[in-house]
Design a binder for these strands. Sequence first.
DNA 1: AACGCGGGGAT
DNA 2: ATCCCAGCGTT
Length: 314
Amino acid sequence: MLQQTTVGAVVPYYAEWLKLFPDLEALARAPLRKVLRAWQGLGYYQRARNLHAAAKIFVREHGGEVPSDQQTLLGVPGFGPYTTAAVLSLAFNQPYPALDANVRRVMMRIMGIHGEADGRPDKNILERLYDEIPPGSPGDFNQALMELGALICRSRNPLCLLCPVQHACRAYDDGEQEIIPKPKKRSYRHITAVVGIIEREGRILIQQRPPAGLLAGLWEFPGGKVKRGESREKALAREIKEELGAEVSQAKFLIQVDHSYTQFRVDLHAFACRIKGDVEEKAGRQKWVALKDLRKYPFPSGSVKIIHFLEKYF
DNA sequence: AACGCGGGGAT
DNA sequence: ATCCCAGCGTT
């Protein structure tokens, strides 16, 4: 859960997760839909699939235990260099440095390495960490470095005057703690999208996204992007026609929700819809679901906001 | 080496 | 409006 996600966002999910899946066997035998539902809102859903697959491997091939060998762990879904090192050092007391974003920033500053923070393991930093890591307490060392990065050696406004290793920091000596690492430039697009809440005989139509790509395997309401110069109603009718082969006979605006991704921001407009005729069966799975049953399916966060609105006012 | 993959908090 | 986060897998 902590892969590329802040501790504060993870804590409630972690607690709930352990209630649902108290041990490896419980996770291994759970259906994917429940696993994804428990992950709903956390993002990067491939992590949930990986963890699910890993639990199955541990139960089936390793007697229900987590292996304590580096090469074995590196072959398990979701276990890359960082996670493998973190498990080996924290759980098994083995001297592997856990090089995460915090530690990388701390070490770039201590060693005076300029440039952007690269996501890949840096050879020079790893060599230094292997030299410094105390064989007797590698887990404490790793966690101390991560904590130093999170609380003192922060990305912005580092608290150098409170830093216990200020005397050993090249960036501080040179007054470069604010420019190491160099901020990344990102483009930021804005998209407006419409979705149809299509009801028939007390049920609402939802469809499942493809098994790979963005929000893979999650469910959503039919709809799509609004093109330039196009009205929301026109876009809704066009998308419903494209996706379902059906004509929109009525559309009443319900709610607008904002939703931000890393690379873009979506402005979602939901409409209560009536359609004429039947819905075309598509390769992607579709379901008519009662409002109270929507919460059983994994949706992206933007859709969840719409569902909360529906539950409150319908 | 570069890119795709969420979502929310901090500033 | 930007930037970032206890990264990984694919190309």
